[in-house]
Amino acid sequence: LLSLLLFEIMENWNTSSDFILLGLLGHSRAQQFLFGMVLTIAFMALVGNALMILLIQQDIRLHTPMYFLLSQLSLMDAMLVSTTVPKMAADYLTGNKSISPAGCGFQIFFLLTLGGGECFLLAAMSYDRYVAICHPLRYPIERVSVLMAAGCWLVATLNAMVHTGLALHFPFCRSRVIDHYFCEIPAMLKLSCADTSSYERGVDMSAILFLLIPLSTICASYVKILLTVLRMKSSEARKKSYSTCSFHMVVVIMYYGPFIFTYMRPKSYHAPGQDKFLAIFYTIVTPTLNPVIYSFRNKDVLTAMKNVLRSSFPYRK
């Protein structure tokens, strides 16, 4: 059924006109400055996540389940930024804001695959930390982390295939102007002249699976971790654990919060400016913060970075 649906959509793409993306910002001086900031942050996200992947691959001491999951998070974040920002920047600089239905479909597919996969992966990482701290003798081996990561990718990909096919299957007989800087399902549903209420209920079910359940898992894991930390005798260890957990939860809220607010509201309550602002958090801001919060505040990662720098630029008298 899914194959037939995708085939029909591909046939329609050949005859459909392009969509128009209005973009994130205008061309006033203040907005040009903001555009430069967005590009700078996106570049930092790409560099930070690429560096994280490189360090984990190069340093054998980082070949552990925790850092393997972190490398998958960095890969998803780098791909997520690459899905939206290059097109947005090209549209802004060239003034050509059109995007083909196929291009729109690819953006929706990769956003849902990477966004949904990261939701599950963050939950898997919190569970990994819970087992490592609360039940260290049962800490999983490398193979378990590989299976968890593969499951995140697989389930998110299947979900993205279904939603991409269904979202583009609706007739767009109204304006084809999307008030957003990339193709996102809530923004596109506003353009459809068909009844999308049944599909929106399906989106709500997916949101429960990909957002609420993983978020609940993360909260439960950190509560268990904090309760275990409270029983520690070392005040320094407690302080460090509190700091780590608080930073992690801030990033989690910044990621899940906008996603929940965007995908679990009825279509009639969506405001374009609000949706674009919220999308910045899960497509640009959190991919930039994740390497810093989860990795570069870690002594093992900093040591690995120093070793790589020493091997690349050896000291010579």
Rank of each mutant, 00 (worst) to 15 (best):
W13S: 01
I20S: 09
I20A: 03
L21Y: 05
H27D: 04
S28T: 11
G36D: 01
L39I: 08
T40V: 03
I41T: 14
F43R: 00
M44V: 10
V47G: 12
L51V: 15
L51M: 15
Q58Y: 12
D59M: 13
I60F: 05
R61P: 04
L70N: 05
S71W: 02
L73E: 14
S74K: 03
L75W: 07
L75S: 06
L80A: 04
M88H: 06
D91V: 00
N96A: 05
C104K: 00
F110K: 00
C119A: 09
C119P: 00
F120W: 09
L121F: 01
Y130F: 12
Y130P: 00
I133D: 10
L137G: 02
I141N: 04
S145R: 12
C152G: 05
C152D: 03
C152V: 10
T157Q: 04
L166N: 11
V177C: 06
F182I: 05
L189V: 09
L191G: 07
C193W: 01
D195F: 06
G202K: 07
D204E: 12
L212S: 07
L215E: 03
T217K: 12
A220E: 00
S221H: 04
S221C: 11
Y222V: 07
K224C: 09
L226N: 04
V229G: 04
L230K: 13
R231Q: 12
M232D: 07
K233N: 11
S234A: 08
A237E: 15
R238P: 03
K240F: 03
Y242A: 05
T244R: 11
S246R: 08
M249D: 07
M249R: 03
V251C: 15
I253L: 05
M254D: 04
Y255Q: 02
Y256P: 03
P258V: 11
T262G: 01
M264A: 03
P266V: 10
D275C: 15
D275V: 15
Y294M: 12
S311E: 09
F313T: 12
Y315R: 08
Y315Q: 10
